[in-house]
Computed example of a mutant assay.
Amino acid sequence: MTMTEKQKMLAGELYTSDDPELAADAARARDWMARFNAAPAASADETYALLVEGLGHVGAGVTVRSPFHCDYGYNVHLEDGVFLNYGCVVLDVMPVRIGAGTQVGPGVQMVTADHPREASVRAQMLEFGLPIVIGRNVWIGGGAIILPGVTIGNDAIIGAGSVVTRDIPVATTVAGNPARRLVSRVIQKPRTV
C-alpha cells in the first residue's frame, strides 16, 4: 500500500510538502494562528479553548503568548504549566513534546523540519523531519534554536541565543552556538535593603 505524503511526513520519511492534503492542513493552521494571534486580550478560558482547538495536546495551566507560529499545530504537545513567551516558532512536521512546567523565552524556534544533504535529492523538493522532546521543568532562554531530533532532559537550562544541535542530559546547563555544557553556578537572589 502506498503511503500518502502526510503519512510519510508523520513517519519521518522523505515527503513533498506541497501535497494537497498537507497544504490544506497548513491552511487550517494559518487560519487558526490568525485567530489566536489576533486575540491577545481574550480571557484565559477563551485563550485555552483556542489552544485546545489548534494544538495536539494542551495540559492545564498552559500559557502561550501571541504571536505564536507553527506549521500544522497537531504535532505540538504541551503538558501542564508550560509557558511559551512572545514570538515562538514551532515547525512541527514531526511531534514537539514539551514537559510540564517548562518555560520558553521569547523568540525561541523549535525546528523538526530537515532537508536531505544530497543536492540531487534536495532539488526534488523533498524534506523529512525528526521529533523534538523537551523534558519537565526546562528553562529555554530567549532566541534559542532547537534543531531536529533533539531531546532535552528534565531540569536542563538552555542559554539565550543558543543553537541546540544534540541531546542535552538531565539537569545540564548549556549555551552557545553550538550549545555546549557550562559549569552551573548558583546565582543568589538580591537582598532587600
Rank of each mutant, 00 (worst) to 15 (best):
N177V: 15
E13P: 03
T192N: 15
L55K: 08
P20V: 11
T165R: 06
D114N: 15
S184F: 04
P178Y: 08
A144S: 04
L126V: 06
S162W: 05
K189D: 14
F68W: 00
I145D: 01
R185S: 14
V108I: 00
L91D: 01
V193F: 11
D45V: 10
A156W: 00
D80Q: 04
H115I: 12
Q103Y: 09
A119Y: 11
N137V: 03
A156I: 03
P116C: 06
I140V: 14
G143D: 11
D19Q: 12
I187P: 03
F68R: 00
S162C: 12
M125F: 13
T47Y: 01
V108H: 01
A160T: 11
P40C: 07
T112Y: 02
G107M: 07
D167R: 03
R35T: 11
I158L: 06
Y15K: 06
R122Q: 11
G135W: 02
E79Q: 15
V183P: 07
P106D: 09
E79T: 05
A26S: 14
A171K: 06
E79R: 05
I152F: 00
P131K: 04
G135R: 01
S162G: 10
T63S: 15
A44R: 14
M33R: 08
V104P: 00
L126Q: 14
R185K: 15
G141S: 06
A100S: 15
L126C: 07
D19R: 05
M3S: 13
L78C: 04
R35A: 11
T47A: 13
V170N: 07
R181F: 04
N85A: 13
